[in-house]
């Protein structure tokens, strides 16, 4: 009886994984198919990848996505570290409010943050472009903060105190003790915000200038309204982005356990 229940559950789990993976796997397969229409499997090819990677617009979008994500990640880590140290190592009155407030920035739907920011930039008359996109993504820095704070909470303070007693000044203590101890948290938090930035479509769409395209924007624009523009080329670039996401997810599971 018990065995049967477990088997049914296993069958169900496999079914659900099939549901979750069929679309992405089939998308990847189409990108390796030499037939132009996706109607028929012909033979394995990398043609669509070479085509996609020699398309200037795609390269440009890829480059923009990458440098925006790197910039956002580094700045977000810096800000999250500052906030985490302030909350974790100092006493002040509105600490709880700050903690809650930062958390809000993660749970608010992306479209809401995107449109409020767009209105704000319109209001202050700031020109839209790469910098507004970066600011928009940076509003997610609390996700890094949450991860670093969690790491800090489980970290005994004796190491820092020992360093101070042994004569290190505050900055030395921070760079030699606190920072290395926080590193796994910094890496997991950094991976998270890098992915959020790399994946962001809505925020980027609302805060970018007309000429500035990232990869998700390129995909959206070429698929077009109502998905008329399905093409193996887009599948190829989408699959490439997929592989990067999966690599990041794998790295994340590796570092989370530390």
């Amino acid at each position: 009886m018990r065995r049967l229940g477990d088997r049914i559950l296993l069958a169900y789990t496999i079914m659900l994984f099939v549901f979750l993976y069929t679309p992405i796997v089939s998308m990847a397969l189409v990108s390796f198919n030499s037939g132009r229409g996706i109607l028929k499997w012909e033979s394995f090819t990398l043609e669509w990848y070479t085509k996609a990677l020699s398309n200037e617009k795609i390269l440009n979008a890829l480059f923009n996505s990458a440098w925006v994500a790197v910039t956002v990640t580094l700045l977000a880590i810096a800000m999250a570290l500052l906030a985490a140290i302030a909350v974790g190592r100092y006493q002040f009155r509105f600490k709880l409010a700050l903690n809650t407030g930062l958390f809000l920035a993660i749970v608010v739907p992306e479209i809401v943050e995107a449109l409020t920011l767009m209105l704000f930039f319109l209001w202050i008359g700031s020109p839209f472009g790469a910098s507004t996109v970066i600011i928009g993504h940076l509003v997610w820095f609390p996700i890094v903060y949450v991860v670093i704070r969690a790491r800090m909470a489980g970290m005994p303070r004796v190491y820092e105190e020992a360093a101070r007693v042994l004569g290190a000044n505050e900055l030395q203590t921070f760079f030699k003790i606190t920072l290395p101890l926080l590193l796994p948290g910094i890496i997991t938090g950094g991976l998270l915000i890098f992915t959020w930035s790399w994946d962001s479509f809505i925020k980027t769409q609302f805060t970018r200038g007309p000429g500035f395209e990232t990869l998700p924007i390129y995909i959206w624009n070429s698929v077009g309204a109502r998905g008329r523009g399905l093409s193996p080329e887009v599948n190829a670039i989408a699959t490439l982005s997929l592989i990067i996401s999966i690599a990041l997810a794998y790295l994340y599971t590796r570092f989370r356990g530390r």
Partner: peptide, 8 residues
């Protein structure tokens, strides 16, 4: 799947 872009 949680890490793969929603748009994708």
């Amino acid at each position: 799947p949680f890490w793969v872009t929603f748009l994708l």
